[in-house]
Design a protein around this nucleic acid. Structure first.
Lengths: 121, 121
DNA sequence: CAGTATCCACATCGATACTG
DNA sequence: CAGTATCGATGTGGATACTG
């Protein structure tokens, strides 16, 4: 994360690879990003669309993604409160690029992955 | 992970997105994969090339990746023991496809990511 | 060299109850 | 509706010493 200029061919720790993969170490972050790829959503919509994650975890994920500049929080002064979350340009590029590639890969190779997993478990 | 056929447009949890992103929830797994993209390596070479991870964690990562069908373990009956780890065809396709896309993205957008992070921390 | 066995620190997640 | 606070279960990683 701190050796941007260093050659990453051999010494892989602390290199750029980590800078991205760290974004995925939190289980729900990529899921939240994916859920927003079609456009902004309110907090509650998100929670319902994703399903299976607690308020606390959702809040943490949203804060983290905002802090990383991938999400933007838009609060409206209303009662009841209305808050929307939207991908920033940076976040959108991540979703449309690498995460789309990830999705394409699983569509093509997902079965192989599951088969291999079952064999050994 | 178990609802392969389900529509993932809206309900994101337990869908295919997770099947891939779960591969990245373990910090070192993608690093190990990347370190093997040029060809097979012995355990010790790997540890040295990556740097900063313990024997235990390396072992765990290797076992997990083998179990998922992404890595192959080749042991030679020798003294001292010689063991090589190599990407399978499946693993290679993951590294050359999605992980390459991830690397390309960070090369292009890494600075934005770091700037945004520093602003908020 | 390859791999295992403990012990410990720490973070993530889940469930629940509560505030504005 | 949006968000916070707390507690506990679980798991991931680090350090160290040891076996074949």
């Amino acid at each position: 994360m701190n050796d941007q200029g260093r050659d990453c061919e051999e010494l892989v720790a602390d290199c750029r690879v980590r800078a991205v993969t760290d974004l995925f170490t939190h289980t729900w972050d990529p899921v939240v990003l994916t859920a927003l790829r079609r456009g902004p959503r309110r907090r509650r919509e998100l929670r319902a669309a994703i399903g299976g994650l607690s308020d606390k975890v959702l809040t943490e994920a949203l804060r983290r993604l905002c802090a990383h500049g991938l999400l933007e929080r838009r609060a409206f002064a209303q009662a009841p409160p209305r808050v929307e979350y939207a991908l920033t340009a940076l976040g959108q590029s991540l979703v449309d690029g690498p995460m789309q590639a990830l999705g394409d890969w699983i569509i093509e190779h997902g079965d192989e992955l599951l088969n291999a997993q079952e064999k050994t478990s």
